[in-house]
Write a protein that binds this DNA or RNA. Structure first.
Lengths: 258, 258
DNA sequence: CGATGGATTGAACTGGTTCAAGTGGAGTGG
DNA sequence: CCACTCCACTTGAACCAGTTCAATCCATCG
């Protein structure tokens, strides 16, 4: 029904959330049966969310491309469910994954006329797509909408700075610890409770390209943390974080028996 | 006089510029005698730019700290003239420089209650400071202002993604070539003309921390590019880029006699 | 002029890569 | 239900780009 509603499962946008809740509607999504929050509270004459007329649903299987580096940036995307990988490439094929996105996350905004990155489905995804130009035009009309998206952009900028510190200055072990803790936070937000059992839908090479390492190094560090008893591996795609405190210390370079 | 005006020397904010020019006033800055553009075109009853009442001028010498990692984020800063270094630190002192900012650049927005970084003057700087809360409040009232700042934030997010690719996947030589070309663009924007003679106000260790390298490696790569005839060093803080095309190729991993 | 501190150069070292060889588990089909 | 295949993951061993440690250079400044 209201396909313009947006999956925002936790209060991930910080202090903007409380303010926004006053205005924004909660509706149940027929796609994945969880509560969504409408991006925009303004109803048209038919009582429909004003954004619903602009949006269209999109389904992709794992490994399918959603948009690529030289596409025209015509749409703004919001992930309903599933996981998406954002990446940039060098001409010779070296790749940097700049982010993993999950239910509730946006992309397609941080660019000019063309996308500067490729977005690809990691799992089957359900995505909500808005024509970019129209959304940008609506910002003037609906400051609430503008504020939400601006807030999210600033939060994202913040976390890319943290990732720069990781890429430029952390060791392989510190990188993996940081990554696991970030994934734990994302999972906890999505599930609305703290959870030390973390799903890793992406492959080892995605993690490697995200952390600026090789697959082999990532694999070795998983094994090492496993042996140290800091994590418990259950297959390649599920980890149980056994000692959050030590993982946190190691993520920041604190000394723990290597 | 109008201390709220903002130094935006080039059209660095892309397509937003042309739109914005319709509304925004140009004034001459008594501080550094160059044209500035007012951030906000709305005048109060006395004919003063609405932001001027909120702002205060700030002067810092080289190496002085403007704001640090655990300060409350009470201000939004705009650089009038001079160069600023933004950085993050690990507990053990390893540092990542996340950006160099010059006349016209903003900072202090991309954060929640506390700054997540340290800003330090590289050269003597002249900075314009606005109370953050009031500015954020004004966004609803003045969409032009909001749009400008949002645009700049998105542009910045874009360039941090490029920097992540650099940090995660480029070699030392590629990193330095990329850096020199970025500095050339910034210089060209500031001077409003293409200029292959680039000033590097920051020290080698700042460059190293920006590129995720050591001082020694940065120095060796400078020497190497110099010997290859791609650049001409004139002291440590001025470079002449002799072959933009080959530098560009090398910045992206293209093969040129190493 | 000597002192100070950034920048450069040299030489040994190492964390992470590269290359190469297993391993295991999910899917297929017989 | 088992055998076979495929591909992602793991492990091992040699290697190397960039680091580390240690001089040395050189511009600036009192």
């Amino acid at each position: 029904m209201n396909i313009a509603s947006v999956h925002i499962p936790g209060s991930k946008i910080g202090n903007a959330r409380s303010k926004a809740n006053k205005y924004l509607n909660q509706k149940t999504c027929e796609g994945c049966a969880s509560k969504h929050i409408s991006l925009c509270n303004v109803m048209d004459n038919d009582g429909l969310d004003i954004l619903s007329r602009l949006s269209s649903d999109l389904h992709k299987k794992a490994k399918q491309i959603i948009c690529s580096e030289d596409d025209n940036a015509e749409y703004l995307f919001n992930i309903r469910c599933g996981a998406v990988r954002i990446s940039k490439m060098l001409p010779d094929g070296r790749r940097q994954v700049t982010g993993f996105l999950f239910a509730g996350d946006f992309f397609g905004l941080s660019c000019e006329a063309q996308h500067s990155y490729t977005a690809e489905a990691i799992t089957p995804v359900n995505i909500c797509r808005f024509p970019r130009k129209k959304i940008l035009g609506l910002f003037q009309e609906f400051p609430d909408l503008n504020e939400r998206v601006f807030d999210m952009t600033r939060t994202e900028l913040n976390s890319t700075h943290a990732q720069m510190l990781l890429l430029g200055r952390k060791t392989a072990k510190e990188k993996l610890c940081s990554f696991l803790l970030v994934m734990r936070n994302k999972t906890s937000l999505l599930e609305k409770r703290v959870k030390d059992e973390v799903d890793l839908p992406m492959g080892r090479s995605d993690i490697a390209d995200y952390l600026g390492l090789t697959v082999e190094t990532v694999s070795r560090q998983f094994t090492s943390l496993n042996r140290l008893g800091l994590i418990k591996l259950d297959g390649a795609h599920r980890v149980f974080l056994k000692n959050i405190e030590r993982l946190s210390t190691m993520a920041e370079g604190g000394r723990t028996l290597s």
